[in-house]
Write a protein that binds this DNA or RNA. Structure first.
Lengths: 325, 325
DNA sequence: CGCAAAAATGGTATCGGTAACATCCTTCGC
DNA sequence: GCGAAGGATGTTACCGATACCATTTTTGCG
């Protein structure tokens, strides 16, 4: 079943069928009706591959994430996908697995000629960067901040987020601060910010339970156990994610440690449970869905040839104080 | 930059370039080297759209999920994507949003001529079903069971899972059983199984807190509040997901209700936290990643023309008894 | 060394749409 | 009633790869 078959049955030329389907306003109501009836009767499905080749418009946007299990990105994916679909774009999903396979992955993606590319983070191989720039495809990097993005960017400063966590805990009077921290890229930057503020305040040594990325509940338990086992004095524990924090709290409660009485706990991400646990969780809230929405809008704008005024959008973050600190 | 440009520079014909890239074993090491050097120097990226059109092989597999926020499907997506990528396939992600937009979504997807389609669940519009069958594209439905799948199927019986939950709680001596339940399709089937067993045992009335899909932490709290507020006597609460169960437990603990002493709580899904909360959560474990892996393998096998012996794979489920019951 | 078989390479057509331009048919104003 | 303008439809070529078959080159062996 090709457009030619449909055309023959409907008694028009192939291009008229094409128009009836893609630009119905250019076609007489009469022929439109005729074409549509043939299409629905025959179950004809236009081959978008052929269309894409000729029109040089793939109607595909690629989205690359390190991984999606136990991660903060699902809300972003959902929002991104919803926005793009509304405009007739489909999402090609790439999961780069936190390993260094992003390279190959993006190489493969570029062959598909997507009209836009969403990337998680700003840490890409120089080669990848070059390739992306050379491709002239609109790119949005997200979930991080840099003055020199590949193209566009929607994110926030992890360094500042880490600093905010430190300042908050200091303001609460804590000086014996321990970390339970995942080891992914962006968490590392938050940690750096956090440590730098602590250092400024004369706290150079910070006991840390480092966990493989990304934060899982059980890792939080192990992290706290590790901290306590090390003999370090700890009056507050900062975590690189709410999930870790939840694990820390569970472990503390099992050990009869009161929160926030004995130890204050702070998370990151403002997952949907954070407001509702006991105690509710002090955390850093990120507009996860907003990032996806803004990224989609930025890509769509550029695809439609509009110049995007703000190539860098800082969505910021919000420290949400709750009962765990 | 097209294959012709590369060919010209390398001093060979376009087809030789094509072979060098896709079937290097058919080409002299010498020419292979020459072509590769030109490719890497020029940054040529083959246009897969053109290749797909001619070869009728899109190297794309589409995957449709109702949604991914707060859902059990992320592990499945991850496994599916990883397996497919290993074989050179890319994943076109479709999120149908639990609303009835699956139809359009799949229509759009078919135009891309994917070589395989993964669908979540077995409830599809008759029209969609027809279209999929007519397309002759391998299809795997997953996360559910039916004797009459569109094509292939990897899942388990939600009805039996519900029954198992009921039997387990009955065996534990509970007769005052309340539900906190999400209202998505598959949860509904589990509920049906559960209620039927209870009815068999002379328990026709089961107080239920129904929550909008899918289970979220806060909904669990509200669900328990609702149950208790209704005045019904409840010695056990069954939940349609571990996340809801976690909310139920949190609410109970806040109210000074001991678990499992006063009320037993049971979840579904065996999320990664289920084993590590306090008390740890009795639940139904599903091999989420395995579903993705098997689905990918089934699709790949069919794509490679192998006949799949077992078109229906029941991955079953496992009732995991822990401390919450 | 000569010939058959196999390996390597090339020429041409084609996948199924749409861009670009051409043509035909209305409509409308004077 | 006629010409201009605009709307509807058609013709042709082309997007950039690869399938298919033909041709050339190399290899192996008596």
């Amino acid at each position: 079943m090709t457009i030619r078959d449909v055309a023959k049955v409907a008694g028009v030329s192939p291009i008229t069928v094409s128009r009836a389907l893609n630009h119905p306003e250019l076609v007489t109501p009469d022929t439109l009706e005729r074409v549509r009836s043939v299409v629905s009767r025959t179950g004809y499905v236009p081959n978008e591959i052929a269309g894409s080749l000729r029109s040089r418009r793939s109607r595909i946007v690629a989205a690359v994430f390190p991984q999606i299990t136990n991660s903060m990105f699902v809300d972003t994916i959902q929002a991104l996908s919803d926005c793009l679909r509304q405009e007739g774009y489909q999402v090609l999903l790439g999961l780069s697995s936190y390993e260094e396979r992003e390279d190959e992955l993006i190489a493969g993606i570029l062959g598909r000629r997507p009209e836009g590319i969403y990337l998680t983070g700003i840490g890409h191989a120089p080669d990848t960067r070059r390739r992306l720039i050379a491709s002239h495809i609109p790119v949005v990097e997200a979930w991080d901040l840099t003055p020199t993005p590949i193209d566009m960017l929607v994110g926030f400063s992890h360094e500042k987020a880490g600093e905010a966590m430190a300042r908050y805990l200091l303001a609460k009077g804590h000086r014996d601060i321990g970390l339970v921290w995942g080891n992914d890229l962006r968490a590392g930057v938050r940690r750096k910010g956090l440590l730098s503020v602590l250092a400024e305040h004369g706290i150079p040594e910070v006991p840390t339970g480092l966990e493989p990325a990304p934060g899982m509940f059980q890792r939080g338990r192990e992290g706290l156990a590790e901290l306590l086992g090390s003999g370090a004095r700890v009056s507050a524990v900062a975590c690189s994610s709410d999930v870790l924090a939840q694990g820390v709290i569970a472990e503390a409660q099992d050990r009869g440690i009161r929160i926030p009485g004995d130890i204050a706990v702070m998370g990151f991400g403002d997952f949907d449970f954070a407001a509702h646990t006991s105690p509710s969780l002090t955390t850093i809230a990120i507009e996860k869905a907003m990032i996806g929405r803004l990224a989609a809008q930025a890509l769509l704008a550029r695809i439609q040839g509009k110049e995007v005024a703000e190539r860098i959008v800082d969505v910021g973050f919000r420290l949400v104080e709750r009962d765990s600190t």
